[in-house]
């Protein structure tokens, strides 16, 4: 009985650590509740990032499955999909970091994802233009 409890505790401990590695600390554990308008604005920003990720993924899937075959199609679609995954996988932690900053009254953490995304989407556009221009 005691042994089972111990292994159970160890397992829960591991799960808690893994959870914290992925999602970080619950932002509600620090500071004090900010003006609700700031929380809502942060939430809408998160949702806008998610929609951007979904648009990139849907675009990538569209390139892969709807467009007719052409040279470089696979790479173009994959670039969109990877961009979508990068945006999606950083979105929760970004929301959480912003929420923590709002709750502690510290400056919002900087991010280089917007510039990365701009460069990525520009690359996709240039590649698509090149394919259209130089395909016979």
């Amino acid at each position: 009985m005691g042994f089972d409890e111990q292994t159970d505790d160890a397992m829960h401990d591991r799960q808690r650590r893994a959870w914290r590695t992925i999602f970080g600390e619950d932002p509600r554990n620090v500071g004090s509740e900010p003006d609700y308008r700031f929380s809502f604005a942060n939430e809408r920003t998160f949702l806008a990032w998610i929609r951007t990720a979904l648009a990139l993924i849907a675009g990538g899937l569209g390139v892969e499955t709807v467009l007719p075959e052409f040279g470089g199609r696979k790479e173009l679609g994959l670039l969109l999909l990877v961009l979508g995954m990068a945006v999606a996988s950083t979105s929760y932690r970004r929301w959480s970091r912003n929420e923590r900053a709002l709750r502690t009254g510290s400056p919002l953490p900087p991010s280089n994802l917007p510039s990365l995304l701009a460069i990525g989407v520009a690359a996709v556009g240039l590649a698509a233009a090149a394919i259209i221009l130089f395909a016979e």
């Binding site: 999602f23 509600r28 809502f40 990538g60």
Partner: peptide, 28 residues
């Protein structure tokens, strides 16, 4: 009172990441 809902935010974030992984598999 508290207006944030980390659980809902986590759900949408995780679902989107999982979806992007399957989409990449589909492309491959």
């Amino acid at each position: 009172g508290e207006v944030t809902n980390p659980r809902l935010v986590r759900l949408v974030g995780t679902a989107t990441v999982a979806f992007s992984v399957v989409a990449i598999l589909r492309a491959l």
